[in-house]
Every structure is written in structure tokens, then in C-alpha cells.
Design a binder for these strands. Structure first.
Lengths: 272, 272
DNA sequence: CTACCGTGTCGCGCCATGAGCAACAACTCG
DNA sequence: CGAGTTGTTGCTCATGGCGCGACACGGTAG
């Protein structure tokens, strides 16, 4: 094959070409939202008829669907089924969901569940707040650990040297208030450990406030982070205090559902 | 080869075999949660080495991941990213609209889509009926939860104490038939939960009848309410029954579009 | 310890199968 | 009405995917 510099399909060897191309189509559609077979074929570096057949297989399984009788293609609802099955196997999401939902209705803001995954916070679940304007859906996305409330909570379950390893040496500044010094971050993480929650304002994005608390597993280790987030202007001191209280309560309830017995105090993982 | 009774892969011709098999693997993993390549190969009716290669391609894209260095496979987090891209454009109003439109023409009455928002039902969309007597446009308006069909449906997605919190202690009487007792309201909401629909007559406004049914999201939670409403004198018993049936059907169709699977039955709509 | 299952993983060779070509259909734009 | 799209479809060839079998590894029982 001469030139296929269009879409990364060659980097890590993929045993079967057509499957890889089909999956690449899914990613193309995820990025573009919509695309025609000509576009897709161009991006894959294949003939449009090839793209058409691949799309046809995806469509037969409901992973993609075409907008009109003879129109562009986009991701289909079967994806949602798979995603539901993916998170269903994670009992963190299952057990935390009722509490997260209540948290969302009580605060009126968006609730997220995140786990540590490959040096980032991976959002596993989201319950939209009661606000009329829905925020962007973060499920499946990864956000930096050092600039988010969920990230700091997840880091609080690690030892200091593990924290260093996860975040790396260079902390990118997303806003002027982003913590860029590792030692400062460690100090904050330490505070998260003793307080059991954290509030982050304008560190990832200006005008975005979030408060998070840890969800713990049977052994007391941090398995996930539960957060409430919304526009900073909606979080005055009183609401922030109330949201903090509710998030901690919901996280504790979730922890209890996962078999964690709160010994009244936050117990550290080791006994030294 | 003509013996593929293992997994439905034959119904509507899928242009490219390997892709279809790979997608079938995703469904297998979605159902089973975990599976080894031997299992997968058996279910697909192919050699395990074939299954291994297909899984390899899926793994290269992050759609599946193996539990251990040399272990079983399960769905991966890349699915969540795709789902995020899918839900980004998948909002209740847009997906429900075709069914709502159909519902409006079939019943001849006005159809509304509402969501729970800050202790009230917020109307997001409205399709006017064919009758000459048109109600005013309710889009963007908020109506009390305890005196409307949409409100009761939305409440049916909550726990009892959450219902109490949403409606507050004092239920205002808009008409003589408005439910003003919280316990009575809870009983009605409970009936909505088991029946899957609700009829409200003259509770918000004298002479106004409405029937509503819940629209559910991927996780089965109530994300919106779909209703048909009109003057009471136009709703005799027969029309009410028919409207109820149609509303429930339209709501179910909308739910399906949002990825909700009604009491999970495996696909059997093939062979046509 | 050895033999025997089981698993996931990999090399090889045949041929089914997927890819490219080109012609077709439908739809938009001047 | 023609020139430009678009998505769709036979056809044909060789490429890429398949099944076979062997290997590596981890248990378990003898």
C-alpha cells in the first residue's frame, strides 16, 4: 500500500485490516459527528466503495446509522448499549448511580463519576443536573489529574511518589490558577486526604467550579471520585458548603454500598 | 460454510464478513461481560485463532482490553468515548420529535415534551394538534409537578423522599380536583411507576385533560415525559384509551432511540 | 516431578473474500 | 438542461483473512 498517512491505522499492528478500518470509521464519526462515504474513504485512504461496504457492516449492527435515505452517516444507538454494558461491569458505577442521581437532583448541578486511568481521570458516568442548559457530556473523556477536583481526589488515594509518577514532572497550566508546582500539588493532595473532599475553582477552565469526594472500596482504597460541578457564578459560599456536604455524603453512601466500613475516620491504606 | 447457528450474523447480508464478526464479538462481550478467545471462537463458529486476531484488532483500538497479561477479554474504555460522541448530539427533544409529531397527527391533540427542572416540569417542546382550538405555546414554561400528567410521570422516576423534596410540603390547589395531599400524590406516583402512564383531568385547569408516559435513557431512568393534552370534552373514554396507547408507544419509541432497551430481549427483529 | 489438560499466542499456506475499478442513480447547483 | 456532486452496486483479481496446527504457559491431578 502506497500512501495511507490519512488515519493512524499502521502504528500498532492490527491483525485484520478491514476490522481496523471499520473501527477507524467509528473514530472518524466520533470526531466529525457526521460524514459521507466519500469523506470517510478519503480519510482512510481507500476507495469510497470500500468505505461504503465497511459502513454497511457497521450499520447492520446498528453502530452507525444514516441520517437520510441516501445521506451521511453518524454513530448509532448500539454504541450506547455497548457503553452501558461497559460501565455495567464496573460495580462502582452501578452502586454509586442512585446516590449520584439523588445528588444531582438535590444540588441541581451535574454529577460525575471518575476513576484513575493511565495518568488521567477517566469519566465513567454523568448525571445531568436539572439545569435547562445541559453541559457537555464528559463520559469517556479524560481530564488532567492536577487541575480537577476528581483528579485530586483520585490522587489522594496514592502515596506521594505514586502521585509524582502519575502526573509527571510538568504540570500544564490551563488557567492562571492551575497548580503547576508539584510540591504545591502534593500539599493539596495531603489536605484532601485529611479532609475527605476538595473544591476546585477555575483551575481547568475559567468559570468552572467543582467539588469532589472519594469513593472507597472494601479495603478502604480510593476506587473512584464523585463530583458536583457547574458554573462558578452559581456556587456561592452557602451553596458550595451544602454541595460539599452532599457530595461527601453521597460518596460515603457509595463506599458503603461497595463494602467499605467507615471507621468513623478516614483510615489510610498502610499502618505506619 | 453454512452452519452459523451460533451468533446472528446471517440475517441481513453484511458486506464484509470480518468486520461483522468483530462487531459480533463486541455484542458477545456486552452480554457476557467477559470472555476468552476460545469461548468467543465457539460462539462465532470460527477457529479460536480467528477470534484472537479479531480481538486483537479491537484491542488495538481500545474497544476491548484483556483483564490480565494472558487472560480473558472485556469491553474497553474506548467504547465510552464513542458513546460520549453519540450522546453529544442525541438529545431528548430531537429524538422524540418524529414520534411526537406522529402522535400529534394521530390524536389530533397537542403533544408536549417536558423534563424535571428545579421543582417543576419544564416544557421543552410542543407540537400543536390539528384542532382549531389551540392552546398557547408552553415551551419554556414551568408547570407544577403535582397537578400535571407530565409532572407525575417525571416524579415517577424518583424515590418517594425525593418526590417530597421536589414538590415541597404545600401543594397548591389549582382546581377543586387538584391533589393537595402529599401522601395521595405519592400513591398516584406509585401507580404511574407500575402502569407506565398517567391520565390527569382538570387538576391544573378546569377543562384540561392530559395523558403522559415516561421517556427513558440508557440506564432506564426517566429523562423526560411525553404528553398529549387537550380540552376535556374532546376526550371520551374511547379516545382516551387510544391516546394512552399511542402516547406510551411514542414514549417507548423515543426511549429506544435514546438507547434504552425495554426489558432486555436480544434482537429478534431480523430476517426481513 | 511429570503428564495432562486447559488457556492464549503465533507461523504458515490456501483460497475465500474484501478491495478497487467503473458504471449507475439520484440530487443540487447554475 | 448539463456539469458537478453525492451514495450505491456488479464485476474481477489478488490480497488479506481464514483455518490448521504447533507452541508457551498455568494450572491440577497422579
Amino acid at each position: 500500500m502506497s500512501n495511507n498517512s490519512e488515519r493512524g491505522a499502521d502504528s500498532t499492528a492490527s491483525p485484520v485490516q478491514s476490522v481496523d478500518r471499520a473501527l477507524a470509521i467509528l473514530e472518524i464519526l466520533a470526531d466529525a459527528g457526521e460524514a459521507g462515504v466519500t469523506d470517510i474513504g478519503a480519510q482512510l485512504g481507500v476507495h469510497k466503495s470500500t468505505a461504503f461496504r465497511l459502513v454497511g457492516s457497521l450499520e447492520a449492527r446498528g453502530l452507525v446509522e444514516q441520517t437520510a435515505e441516501r445521506g451521511k452517516y453518524r454513530l448509532g444507538v448500539a454504541i450506547l448499549r455497548l457503553a452501558a454494558a461497559t460501565t455495567a461491569r464496573l460495580d462502582v458505577v452501578q452502586e454509586a448511580r442512585p446516590f449520584a442521581r439523588r445528588l444531582a437532583t438535590d444540588t441541581g448541578e451535574t454529577v460525575n463519576v471518575a476513576v484513575l486511568n493511565g495518568g488521567a481521570a477517566l469519566y465513567l458516568d454523568q448525571i445531568a443536573g436539572s439545569s435547562a442548559l445541559q453541559p457537555h457530556n464528559w463520559v469517556g473523556q479524560r481530564v488532567p489529574l492536577h487541575a480537577t477536583s476528581n483528579g485530586k481526589v483520585l490522587l489522594s488515594g496514592l502515596e506521594d511518589d505514586q502521585v509524582r509518577a502519575e502526573v509527571g514532572p510538568d504540570l500544564r497550566a490551563y488557567t492562571p490558577t492551575t497548580v503547576v508546582d508539584v510540591d504545591v500539588l502534593l500539599a493539596e493532595v495531603a489536605r484532601v486526604r485529611e479532609r475527605g473532599h476538595v473544591v476546585v475553582v477555575d483551575e481547568l477552565e475559567h468559570g468552572l467550579t467543582a467539588v469532589a469526594a472519594p469513593v472507597r472500596g472494601v479495603h478502604g482504597d480510593v476506587v473512584a471520585s464523585l463530583s458536583v460541578s457547574g458554573p462558578t457564578f452559581r456556587f456561592d459560599a452557602a451553596k458550595l458548603a451544602r454541595a460539599t456536604e452532599l457530595v461527601v455524603a453521597a460518596a460515603d453512601d457509595s463506599s458503603r454500598r461497595l463494602g467499605h466500613r467507615p471507621t468513623g475516620r478516614v483510615e489510610q491504606t498502610s499502618s505506619n
